[in-house]
Design a protein around this nucleic acid. Sequence first.
RNA 1: GGGCGCGUAGCUCAGUUGGUUAGAGCGCACGGUUCACAUCCGUGAGGUCAUAGGUUCGAGUCCUAUCGCGCCCACCA
Length: 895
Amino acid sequence: MSNDLPKTYDFKSTEERLYNWWWQNGWFKPEVHPDAEPFVISIPPPNVTGELHVGHAMFVAMEDLMIRHARMKGLAALWVPGSDHAGIATQLQVEKMLAAEGTNRRAIGREEFLRRTWAWKEKYGGIITQQLRRLGASCDWDRERFTLDEGLSAAVREAFVRLYRMGLIYRGEYLINWAPGLQTAVSDLEVEYSEEEGTLYYFKYPIAGRDGEYIPVATVRPETILGDTAVAVHPDDPRYRHLIGETCLVPILKRPIPVIHDTYVDMNFGTGALKITPGHDPADFEIGQRHGLPIVNVMNPDATMNENAGPYAGLDRFECRKKLWADMGAAGLTLKTEPYHLTVPRSQRGGEIVEPLVSTQWFVRMKPLADLGLEAVRSGRIRIIPERFTRVYYNWLENIRDWCISRQLWWGHRIPAWYGPDGSMFVAHTAEEAHAQARKKYGKEVELRQDDDVLDTWFSSALWPFSTLGWQEPTPDLQRYYPTSVMETGYDILFFWVARMIMDGLLLTNNVPFHTVYLHGLIRDQYGRKMSKTAGNVIDPLEVMDKYGTDALRFTLLTSATPGNDINLSVDRVAANRNFANKIWNAARFVLMNLGRPGSEVQSVTNETSISNLKSLDLPDRWILSRLNSVIASVNRLFDAYQYGEAGRQVYEFLWGEFADWYVEISKIAFGGANEEAKQRARAILVHVLDQALRMLHPFIPFVTEEIWQHLPHAPNEAPALIVARWPEADTRWVDAQAEADMALIMDLVRSIRNARAEYNVEPGRQIAATIAADGQQPLVESQARVIATLARIDPARLHIEERLAEPPPQSVALVVGGVSVYLPLAGLVDVAKERERLSQEVEATTQRIARSEKLLASDFARKAPAHVVQAERDKLRELQDRRAKLQEQLAALS
RNA sequence: GGGCGCGUAGCUCAGUUGGUUAGAGCGCACGGUUCACAUCCGUGAGGUCAUAGGUUCGAGUCCUAUCGCGCCCACCA
């Protein structure tokens, strides 16, 4: 063999080498095209302590595809990488480590804890970004950022101070979601509701001074009875109307509370009376506000009962529930219990039950921000793909509620607020600035205490597209690369992240952070189940890459789905795409084998042969060039429409099903012959088509395409690497409908003959005779006699092509293909009865189709359908009639 | 309670301005050592496009309803 490529593509020896080579040559940097229009993506920053999962593989594949495509189109492609400090997740990791050492964060103190966490981050923080490289991510690593970097921290403080001064951040005591295990507040978005079986407890609310009279009330959380500050009924409820204004006594505690009326109460639901616990229920909190009810908090931060719970103080809330209910039973206050399915709020992190309770926290006033976010999408300044998510986006923003941003954690951006001795608050960028403010107020230096809380991790993530480029300094990067181009991420963080980036971007930079949002789906297992460790169905992308290569995984992820739809990832599919990589590899080997060694005469001639200079192209040449350019045009259309999966599938089909299966096979005729010009023509076309296909595939499967491309000859002025080579544009002069139609006929002929051979069990190696009545297609069929003979294993000496036959050959298998009759004299093999049966069936099938076509043409179709559609139908009918006539002729000749 | 997605071959999925006989991969059956590739080649079987209506000359594709699966949002005890 005249080249050194191994028989099978070995991705293991390729991927890391190419990746480093690309990076070392600076091709991941936008400066490759210093004066071009920028194309920028900010990476969705993975958790710094995280490890690669298929979700990462998905966004890396998709974003790298976009970036590589843009780069090849000549844009200044910049993909900004980085990672997220992930407050809770990281803190939990470190706390786990401390627990293993027999200590905890409170014991070692805040400062030491942060030191330990940074050490942890330094040690494990590089793993994830290393794994992103493994996927081929062509990020500019010189611009890598971390959300707790000094620059990004400054951006966070700036954002906080600005929002505060605009009145968009406030601090106050409100009902929030409290995670008792984590000991922190969490935002509404971080609470998930799960349907669970529980109990509904019915009990009596005794009326003070009316012996024996009571209002029946039901609850799913009896322990909150201890925090009740009212009983509410509907003002029109005849059962209870007369009790409005009376006083009830809280069971056991005997604390007097009023009976109030509120139209919120549904008369038809439950008992029609509602206990109001403003301290522990969101709806009750609002009712309490409306009626000026006091708030009684009965729980400690660890979800044990506090002193307001009287005799139950110190008990866990669930123990309290049990004991209180028992005591109420003893006091004759219980009515009944019944099974009930309820929605239990659970923490997204860890799954513990979240308790609504009143606490002093920091909030962002969302309404004004939401209006900005809505306008940007409504006006079209930002486009969301797929479009249906715009409605989801609108719906969320239109009903948005304030965002609780303070977290009682240590790992994160500490809230830039300081308190003076009298509790006065100073919000400032730095401690110095806060002290300056304090001096002004107090007229002297005082001691200030910084707020203990840190910000929700998503607060810093919301700044990511601009904070990573240097905001709020007017850095060259910010000037040149902001706003960014596409925000590509999973639809599951549309609210958490995408919407907040849009809002903060608009407010703080006075610009959209990106013009397009592309949302991909979630990766599920091959049966559509969510991947989880407990289900044991997790697909580890690293294992998959070890086994099948990065390209195979990427191609699978990129071609398995349409935007916004979940992907059921199956390893079988990855294996199939590994085969595809190998197929390309071998097609390339074939091409190279016929080119000779680098530097050889043949290769240098091919180097300099431009397709447009080729003379006397044969049908297969014109066909493959036409197909190539049709595919290029289609792929470009699909890329413009963000239909990447379909684009990838089309190139796959083209390369394997047309180029390899047909053109390569046909080219062997030339290489087996003595016509040097034909050989050279084939070489030039093979190289050209392969080259163009590799370019289109590179964003999908960068490694195998680059590796092959490096072995192909190129024009002297060509780019040094595929990663920076030019993206193909269709040359419509090559698109040749006649060539495609003619070739389709030849291919059909070949397929039909192969089919007949298989039906009759003709030995694959045996060359047979054939007589063809071309009926108007004689020049075409004649010109491709060699192709037909070779691909269908016809003996060229016994291939007869006539315009028409005086008499069909006897003892033959007869076929009709697109108006052309083919006779295969398989003497001794032909079973006349079987043939008659087969032909009769074909006549019958054709007759049915004729009938359908005639009926269609006799209907309104002929009048109302577009002319070209009607014409196509007429042509089809004529063809069918011709086909039937020929089949009948063949049938008649069989006797 | 509102909203969204999905339901196409045994399995997993494509099918985006409605227009020939609805496609792919895997699996299955039969046959293949011709020097690119057995991670391959050739041939084949397999589908009332969930169901019922409707719009249209024409519907997998548009509309309505129903069933099944999944997801998101929502303060009914």
